[in-house]
Every structure is written in structure tokens, then in C-alpha cells.
Design a protein around this nucleic acid. Sequence first.
DNA 1: GACTCAGTTAAGCATTCACTTAAGTGTTGT
DNA 2: ACAACACTTAAGTGAATGCTTAACTGAGTC
Lengths: 111, 111
Amino acid sequence: MSRPAAGADVFQAIADPTRRALLDRLRAGEQPMKQLAQPFALSLPAISQHLRILCEVSLVTQRRVGRQRFYRLNPEPLQQVSAWVGHYEQFWTEKLAALGEYLEDSACDET
Amino acid sequence: MSRPAAGADVFQAIADPTRRALLDRLRAGEQPMKQLAQPFALSLPAISQHLRILCEVSLVTQRRVGRQRFYRLNPEPLQQVSAWVGHYEQFWTEKLAALGEYLEDSACDET
DNA sequence: GACTCAGTTAAGCATTCACTTAAGTGTTGT
DNA sequence: ACAACACTTAAGTGAATGCTTAACTGAGTC
């Protein structure tokens, strides 16, 4: 096959910076393909393929209006990412707490 | 070149399920290579290469003790992911709120 | 010093990726 | 009906991924 598949996995889908940029752009609201693609230095088919991958993992949905295709953000699948990263948040808050204590202690040692 | 590089990008680093599993395993604490690799049906070099990629994006750090190599989790780079996904959280909470309202309304229509 | 153990580096391979240009598909305007 | 428009699908290409086996490095053991 010739087109990219990206494994139908959300983590894989957001691994590409262009795809993340597309999602970021879609935060501003539903947009037709051409307008979405405008700031990118890529051919239209390239963008189309990226959008297809985002579609496959349900991060965007399509709506056809005349000869235009509007793309809309559907952030739900990102909850998967959020949940996974969430497991690690406690670690860096712990580290920050430890740093805080360290600073307090060393402040006392400072003479 | 023959070994994987994964672009030194955190999003790319966590795109691979094996790498995510390694990080998950490291949440239990610092571990030597062999113990880390044990549950995976992969050769040792494969794991070693994944760990190297995680090292390159600073998600893990190495410590040498005798002939063992202990790997330790360093979750800070994940804040980058957390921050990005954070931009989308408002969208799904909004959607949940909308769903809540819809349910309330339809409860009234229910006869 | 020779032998193992823990792990990495090297080399090679099949697959997947992101991209391109060229050729459709369907809609709108004349 | 026909041309222009907004896209997508097809086909092909170079580079990156993920994996393997084989060879190496370096630390403990006999």
C-alpha cells in the first residue's frame, strides 16, 4: 500500500508534528481543508493523508458541504493520552516537593 | 545508519507501545536492564535500543553498578505532552457539560 | 589470565512513513 | 454540456523504524 496508516493508534497519530499542528489549528473551530492546509509548506495530498489518519483514530470528523470538506476536532481520544500521562504527574509533583524540602534544608545549612 | 533514532522528540518516543510499557514498568522503581526486559518477547538488543531512545529524550537515566546498568524513570519531559494535551481538556469538559444539559432536557421530554 | 555475565554496538533486513506528482471523483458555475 | 474547483486516491520514492543475529566491551569469577 502507498498511503501511511499510522497504526490506528492515538499515540502514533499525535507523534507527527504536522498532525499536532493540524489539531492545534482545529481548536479554532471547524474548517475546510484548504483553509486548514494554508499555513503548511506541504502539498494538498500530504495534508489530506494526515487528516485521514486523524480521522482513523477519530481525532477529527468530516462534514461535506457542497464541494468543500469541513474538518472538526474531536478531542475525546486524547483522554487516552491524558490518562496515561496522568500516571506520571505524581512523579514530577513528588520531585518538586522533594526539591522544596531540599531547598528548605539547605537554607538552614547555609552558614 | 542502522539503529533507530526516533527524532529526539518526546511525542515520537512515547509513540511506540514497547517504549510506553518500559516506562510503565519503570514506575515501580529503578531496575537493571535484564529485569526490565524480562516480560517482553523481544531480544535484549531490541530493548537496549528502545532504552537508548528513551535516554535521548531524557525520559530515563542510566546508572552503572558493577556490570549492571540500572535504569531510572525521569518523567519531566512528559510535562511537554501533558501541557499539549491540556489545551484539549477544556474541549471535552465542555462536551461533557453539554451532554449533561442534554440529559437534563431530555429527561423532561420523556413522557 | 581464561571464562562467564550484563549489556551495548554493528550490520543487515523488511516494513512503515511522509512526501511527491499524476490521475480520479464529485460539485458548482456558465 | 463543459470547464473550474475542492478535494481524494493511486503510484512511486527516499528515509526512518523496529527487529534480528553476530561481534564487541567491560566487570566480576575461577
